[in-house]
């Protein structure tokens, strides 16, 4: 790895390193996509309805929350950080959204919210709560230099606690059609939350690929000291990714409440692990600096296809986490294998 690994990096190397076909390298690089296709083919052969348009939208609607959270998580992990708090922030933001929509008598489960601008305010409140939570995390991580794992582990506990205090154990339900629109209606054939998910993927992709911000994120993740000495505001950049992740969690809190028609303390419990798994399966390095939103999209779809395919085949749902666990380790192993191949 260091100075002149076996002269491969030497002066004779560049001209001769013409890429030859290397099946293991290709397998490693495209492992998630290959997994995804193989799974889809298997499930379709067993159950032709799996490949239907209906199931396609169904699958996306099942997974939009993971998908949006994973976009935010990709930014965090690209800087070499981690955000364990997303599930808890989601729950708290969902309760705040419900309360804002219903106004002063929000504990009254008999009457729905007023709809209209109340819903807009609810969504804004959820996003603000999420971004605010992310700002707190980011401040502790970037300014106070507390490790991200510790800060967001604290967040994981604290925001869930905040949700409990607020709800006092009671879910908030009964919402207007306006409120339910964002989680359960359609634009053409596409569910509204899936359209929002798509917008996040596209925005995230463009931001990371084409903007100075995205470039700076990769640089900070790849080598924070070099990034700072190149004139980047590394503290601000690191804070920003937690704000993005928190913002995504906040919005998901609102969308999930809207989809389920209830804001609950237990919403989003354990989501952080699934979301991190999706990002990692998608090829983003936990050490930072390497990865992409497209990879994350593939990782999310892979988990979604797996869950839905197993359900269609009546496999005991408790097997899902086991399979996901194996795939996480396997895809990272194949990725490492491919990298080693590339470097000789």
């Amino acid at each position: 790895m260091t100075t002149e690994t076996g002269a491969v990096a030497g002066t004779v190397a560049p001209e001769q390193t013409k890429r030859r076909f290397d099946p293991i390298e290709l397998l490693g690089r495209f492992a998630p996509v290959i997994f995804l296709i193989v799974l889809a083919v298997i499930f379709t052969s067993q159950q032709p309805a799996f490949a239907s348009e209906q199931n396609f939208w169904f699958l996306l609607r099942q997974n939009f929350v993971y998908g949006i959270l994973a976009v935010g998580m990709t930014f965090v992990i690209l800087t070499g950080g981690i955000d364990l708090s997303v599930g808890s922030v989601l729950a708290f933001a969902g309760l705040v959204a419900a309360a804002v929509a219903k106004g002063s008598n929000w504990r009254d489960v008999g009457n729905p919210d007023a709809g209209g601008t109340a819903v807009l305010l609810a969504a804004l409140a959820a996003m603000a709560v999420g971004a605010g939570a992310g700002l707190i995390h980011g401040f502790a991580i970037a300014k106070l230099k507390v490790p991200a794992f510790v800060v967001t582990l604290g967040g994981l506990a604290a925001w869930r606690g905040a949700a409990q205090v607020m709800s006092q154990g009671q879910p908030i339900n009964k919402f207007s059609d306006d409120y339910r629109y964002w989680g359960s209606q359609f634009i053409g054939p596409a569910p509204v939350p899936v359209v929002i998910f798509a917008a996040f993927v596209i925005t995230g992709y463009l931001a990371l690929r084409f903007t100075t911000y995205g470039r700076s994120i990769y640089a900070v993740g790849g080598n924070p000291e070099a990034a700072r000495l190149s004139g980047l505001n590394t503290t601000g950049l690191i804070m920003s990714v937690y704000v993005i992740s928190g913002f995504c969690a906040g919005l998901c809190g609102f969308l999930l409440t809207s989809r389920l028609g209830a804001a609950e303390v237990v919403a989003g419990q354990g989501y952080e692990l699934i979301v991190i798994a999706a990002v990692v399966i998608g090829g983003t390095s936990l050490f930072g600096g390497e990865g992409s939103i497209l990879g994350t999209l593939v990782g999310t779809l892979l988990i979604g296809v797996l869950n839905s395919g197993l359900a269609i085949n009546n496999v005991n749902p408790y097997f899902q986490p086991i399979i996901i666990g194996v795939i996480v380790v396997l895809s990272v192993y194949l990725d490492q294998l491919a990298k080693r191949r590339r470097r000789g």
């Binding site: 084409f210 903007t211 100075t212 911000y213 470039r215 990769y218 080598n223 070099a226 190149s230 390497e290």
Partner: peptide, 25 residues
């Protein structure tokens, strides 16, 4: 250096503001 980035990306790193318009590289 950011070893995981390309030569091009490393070269641009210290002058991203000059190499961009409206935040787009």
């Amino acid at each position: 250096l950011v070893l995981s980035l390309a030569i091009r990306e490393n070269l641009g790193l210290s002058m991203l503001d000059r190499l961009s318009r409206f935040g787009i590289v």
